[in-house]
Amino acid sequence: MDDRVQLYVCENCGRSIHEGEKYQPADDANFCEEHAATLADILAFWEGDVADQSGDAYWPDEFESLEDAQEHVAELRERVARDGADFKPLREA
Rank of each mutant, 00 (worst) to 15 (best):
S54M: 06
A36P: 10
D41A: 02
H35N: 11
A29T: 02
D52R: 05
D68L: 08
A40K: 14
E33W: 05
H72Q: 12
E47H: 03
F63E: 09
D27W: 08
D28V: 04
E64R: 09
Q24Y: 05
A51C: 03
L39N: 06
F31C: 05
F31P: 09
W59L: 13
D27Y: 06
D68Y: 11
P25H: 00
G20V: 00
G20N: 01
G48R: 06
D49G: 07
A51Q: 10
Q70C: 05
D28E: 11
A37K: 13
H72A: 14
D56V: 03
G48P: 09
C32H: 08
D49S: 06
A74V: 05
D68W: 07
F31T: 05
S54E: 12
H72I: 08
W59R: 10
I42K: 07
E33M: 05
D49Y: 07
H72G: 11
E21P: 08
D61C: 10
L66Y: 14
D68P: 07
D41N: 11
W59I: 10
A36D: 12
S16Q: 02
A29L: 07
H72M: 14
S54Y: 08
A51I: 01
H35G: 02
G20M: 01
E67T: 11
D52K: 06
G20T: 01
W46A: 04
N30G: 03
A51H: 06
V73R: 14
L66S: 12
A36E: 12
W59D: 15
V73W: 15
A51K: 12
A44D: 14
Y23W: 02
A26E: 10
Q53D: 14
C32W: 10
A37R: 13
D56R: 09
N30F: 08
F31Y: 14
H72Y: 15
S65Y: 08
Q70D: 12
Y23A: 03
Q70N: 12
A36I: 04
E71S: 13
A26R: 03
L39W: 06
E67S: 13
